[in-house]
Computed example of a mutant assay.
Amino acid sequence: MSVLPPHLTPENWLYQVFASNEARRGGVVKRQIRDVERLVGRDAFLAAVRRHGYQAVENGRHFVVFCNAHPIRRLK
Protein backbone atom coordinates (compact mmCIF):
# COMPACT_ATOMS: atom_id res chain seq x y z
CA MET A 1 0.00 0.00 0.00
CA SER A 2 1.32 3.45 -0.84
CA VAL A 3 1.84 6.12 1.77
CA LEU A 4 -0.32 9.19 1.26
CA PRO A 5 0.92 12.72 1.85
CA PRO A 6 -0.25 14.20 5.18
CA HIS A 7 -2.43 16.83 3.50
CA LEU A 8 -4.44 14.17 1.62
CA THR A 9 -6.89 13.25 4.35
CA PRO A 10 -10.18 11.55 3.49
CA GLU A 11 -11.99 14.79 4.38
CA ASN A 12 -9.78 16.89 2.09
CA TRP A 13 -10.15 14.42 -0.77
CA LEU A 14 -13.95 14.41 -0.47
CA TYR A 15 -13.98 18.20 -0.29
CA GLN A 16 -11.92 18.43 -3.48
CA VAL A 17 -14.24 16.06 -5.34
CA PHE A 18 -17.44 17.88 -4.43
CA ALA A 19 -15.97 21.39 -4.63
CA SER A 20 -14.69 20.82 -8.17
CA ASN A 21 -16.00 23.12 -10.90
CA GLU A 22 -17.80 20.21 -12.54
CA ALA A 23 -19.59 19.22 -9.33
CA ARG A 24 -20.53 22.82 -8.52
CA ARG A 25 -21.99 23.25 -12.02
CA GLY A 26 -24.21 20.21 -11.52
CA GLY A 27 -22.16 18.05 -13.86
CA VAL A 28 -20.68 14.59 -13.61
CA VAL A 29 -17.55 13.44 -11.80
CA LYS A 30 -15.90 10.05 -12.20
CA ARG A 31 -13.50 8.40 -9.78
CA GLN A 32 -11.83 5.01 -9.85
CA ILE A 33 -13.32 2.63 -7.29
CA ARG A 34 -9.82 1.55 -6.27
CA ASP A 35 -8.93 5.15 -5.36
CA VAL A 36 -12.17 5.75 -3.48
CA GLU A 37 -11.70 2.59 -1.44
CA ARG A 38 -8.04 3.40 -0.73
CA LEU A 39 -8.52 7.06 0.17
CA VAL A 40 -11.90 7.32 1.93
CA GLY A 41 -13.72 3.99 1.76
CA ARG A 42 -16.79 3.07 -0.23
CA ASP A 43 -19.29 3.69 2.59
CA ALA A 44 -17.94 7.17 3.42
CA PHE A 45 -17.90 8.12 -0.27
CA LEU A 46 -21.47 7.00 -0.86
CA ALA A 47 -22.60 8.74 2.35
CA ALA A 48 -21.06 11.98 1.02
CA VAL A 49 -22.85 11.49 -2.30
CA ARG A 50 -26.18 11.13 -0.45
CA ARG A 51 -25.41 14.07 1.87
CA HIS A 52 -24.98 16.32 -1.18
CA GLY A 53 -28.25 15.02 -2.65
CA TYR A 54 -26.44 13.47 -5.63
CA GLN A 55 -26.69 10.07 -7.26
CA ALA A 56 -23.96 7.62 -8.22
CA VAL A 57 -23.61 4.55 -10.36
CA GLU A 58 -20.89 1.95 -10.47
CA ASN A 59 -19.62 0.94 -13.88
CA GLY A 60 -16.58 -1.24 -14.39
CA ARG A 61 -13.70 0.33 -12.47
CA HIS A 62 -15.45 3.66 -11.80
CA PHE A 63 -18.01 5.44 -9.71
CA VAL A 64 -19.87 8.02 -11.78
CA VAL A 65 -21.49 10.73 -9.67
CA PHE A 66 -24.28 12.88 -11.08
CA CYS A 67 -23.95 16.13 -9.15
CA ASN A 68 -27.60 17.10 -9.44
CA ALA A 69 -30.97 15.67 -8.49
CA HIS A 70 -32.21 15.07 -12.05
CA PRO A 71 -33.56 11.60 -12.83
CA ILE A 72 -31.17 9.10 -14.39
CA ARG A 73 -32.53 7.18 -17.33
CA ARG A 74 -30.55 4.30 -18.77
CA LEU A 75 -30.42 4.31 -22.55
CA LYS A 76 -29.41 1.40 -24.77
Rank of each mutant, 00 (worst) to 15 (best):
M1W: 10
M1A: 15
S2N: 06
S2F: 14
S2Q: 08
V3Q: 05
L4S: 00
P5A: 05
P5D: 04
P6Q: 05
L8V: 05
T9E: 07
T9R: 05
T9S: 08
T9Y: 06
P10K: 07
P10C: 07
E11T: 13
N12D: 07
W13M: 02
L14S: 00
L14K: 01
Y15E: 14
Y15G: 13
Q16E: 14
Q16A: 14
Q16P: 11
V17T: 04
F18I: 07
A19C: 13
A19Y: 10
A19M: 14
S20N: 07
S20C: 12
N21D: 11
N21T: 12
E22A: 14
E22M: 11
E22D: 09
E22W: 02
E22L: 12
E22I: 12
A23G: 04
R24L: 15
R24W: 10
R25I: 08
G26K: 04
G27M: 06
V28I: 10
V28N: 00
V29Y: 01
K30W: 07
K30L: 01
R31C: 08
R31F: 07
R31T: 02
R31H: 13
Q32R: 13
Q32E: 11
Q32N: 08
I33L: 06
I33E: 02
I33F: 05
V36Q: 01
V36W: 02
V36S: 00
E37H: 06
E37A: 01
R38Q: 09
R38H: 09
R38W: 11
R38T: 09
R38P: 03
R38D: 06
R38E: 06
L39Q: 06
V40L: 02
V40C: 09
G41Q: 00
R42Q: 12
R42V: 10
R42S: 12
A44G: 04
A44C: 03
F45G: 00
F45A: 03
L46M: 14
A47R: 10
A47E: 12
A48V: 09
A48M: 13
V49C: 06
R50D: 13
R50L: 07
R50E: 12
R51S: 05
H52K: 08
H52M: 08
G53D: 00
G53C: 02
Q55W: 09
Q55T: 15
Q55E: 13
A56Q: 02
A56K: 02
V57K: 15
E58K: 14
E58C: 07
E58L: 10
N59W: 11
N59A: 09
N59P: 00
G60A: 04
R61H: 01
R61I: 00
R61K: 03
H62K: 10
H62P: 01
F63C: 02
F63A: 02
V64Y: 13
V65G: 01
V65R: 02
C67A: 08
C67D: 03
N68K: 07
N68V: 04
H70S: 14
H70K: 15
P71L: 15
P71S: 15
P71I: 11
I72N: 14
R74A: 09
R74Q: 12
L75D: 04
L75Y: 13
K76F: 14
K76M: 13
